[in-house]
Design a protein around this nucleic acid. Structure first.
Lengths: 195, 195
DNA sequence: CGGCGCATGTAACTTGTTACATGATTCC
DNA sequence: GGAATCATGTAACAAGTTACATGCGCCG
C-alpha cells in the first residue's frame, strides 16, 4: 500500500527551489532529468490543479506573462513543504525497469544475428550521445561552482548516469564481440553444409 | 505510433521455446527475468485469452493438470511465430527508467543527510543480493553448457545485469563517501555556530 | 503570413498494479 | 484443520502517453 504519486513529488521538489509554470517544469525534466526521469503535460497540468485545490501549492497569475497567452506560476505552501519532507523520509520504492533490448536479445535466436547486432549498435549510439551530454553538464557544473545550493547532489546524480551509461557501453562492446564471433562460426557451418 | 504491447511479445517469446501455462509464464519472469522484466497476472491472463481468440496462440487442456484445479497450456501458432519475428526486426524502443533514489538525492538538501545515506545503503544492499544471484546463475549456466539452445544469449543478458549492477554498487560507494564527508563538514559548522 | 516558441489544458486510450474470488491438492 | 502451492481470472484503480484544441507574440 505504498502510495507512489511520483509526479506529485517531482513537482513538490522542483517548486521547493523556486516557483515555476507547468511548462517550465516540463522543460526542466526534459533538459536536466531526461536520463532518469520523464513527465508529460497530461500528467503535469491535471496534477498541478489538483495540488492547488488541496492547498499544497498556490496558483498565481504569472507577472512575467507579457508574451504569449496567460500563464500561471505555482508556489509551494508550507503544507507542500511538509509533504515533500515526509516523502523524503519514506523508503525508496524498487524501480521497475523493462529493457526491451534484453528481451529481444534473449529471443534473438528466432531472428537474425545481423538484426540484433544493429539494435545493440543503435542502443550504444543513443546512450553515447547522452554520455557526451553528461560531460558537458559536468564541466558546466565544475566551472560554476556554488551556483546551486544543491550542487553536490546534482553532481552525485550526474555521476550515477556516467557510471551506468559507461556500463551500458562496455556491455555493448562485449556483446557485439561475442555476436560477431558467433556469426563467423555460423558462417563456417553453412560453408560446411554446402560442401 | 509504435505499438508497444510488451507483454504480448514476452508471451510469444516464451511460448516459442515451449508450451506453458499462464502461471508458468509468471514464474519464469519472476525467477529468470526479474532484474530486467516484470509482469502481473492481471496482464498475463487477459492477454493470453485475447491472443488465443486472435489465433496467434492455441489454448489447450493441460494433460498434466492432475493436481489443483483445471489448467491450460498455451502453444504458439505459425501466425504467432510470424508476429514474434516481425517484432524482433523492429527498432528497440527507448526505455524510460524512473530512479526514485536519484529524485530523492536531488532534493535531499530539504531533508536529512542521514536519511538519504540510509536510503542509498538500502539501494546498495538490495542490488547486492541480486549480484549474488547473477553469480549463481552464471555458474549454473557454465556447468550446464548446451542445456539451452539460446545459451549464448542468456549469458549476454546476464552479463548486462552484472555490469550495470556493478556500476550501481560502485556509485553507492562513492556517493556514500561524498555524503559522509559533507556530514562531517556540516557537523563542524554546527560546532562553530554553537561557540 | 506562416512557422516557431511560449503556454495551458483535455479526452481517449493504453498500460500496469492490487486486491480479491475461487478452488483443488498436498503436507504438517 | 490450516497453511502452502498450484492455478485461473476479474474489477477497480492508478499511472502514463498521445493527439488534439486553443491562442498570443515574435521574427523573417
Amino acid at each position: 500500500m505504498s502510495s507512489s504519486k511520483k509526479t506529485r513529488y517531482l513537482i513538490l521538489g522542483l517548486l521547493s527551489e523556486s516557483p515555476l509554470t507547468g511548462y517550465e517544469i516540463k522543460k526542466i525534466v526534459d533538459l536536466r532529468f531526461a536520463y532518469f526521469w520523464s513527465e508529460s503535460y497530461g500528467q503535469i497540468y491535471p496534477e498541478l490543479n489538483k495540488m492547488n485545490e488541496e492547498g499544497v501549492i498556490h496558483k498565481l497569475e504569472n507577472p512575467e506573462s507579457t508574451k504569449g497567452r496567460n500563464s500561471y506560476k505555482y508556489e509551494i505552501t508550507s503544507e507542500g513543504l511538509e509533504e515533500l519532507k515526509e516523502w523524503l523520509e519514506c523508503p525508496v520504492e524498487k524501480e521497475v525497469i523493462r529493457y526491451e533490448i534484453l528481451l529481444k536479445l534473449y529471443f534473438s535466436n528466432m531472428g537474425s544475428t545481423d538484426t540484433i547486432m544493429e539494435q545493440i549498435k543503435e542502443f550504444q549510439m543513443t546512450h553515447k550521445k547522452q554520455q557526451h551530454l553528461f560531460e558537458l553538464f559536468q564541466k558546466d557544473l565544475e566551472e560554476n561552482f556554488d551556483e546551486h545550493d544543491n550542487h553536490a547532489e546534482v553532481l552525485m546524480v550526474l555521476m550515477f548516469g556516467q557510471k551506468v551509461w559507461a556500463a551500458y557501453d562496455e556491455w555493448c562492446q562485449e556483446a557485439l564481440k561475442l555476436l560477431q564471433k558467433r556469426k563467423e562460426l555460423t558462417k563456417g557451418d553453412f560453408d560446411e553444409e554446402r560442401n
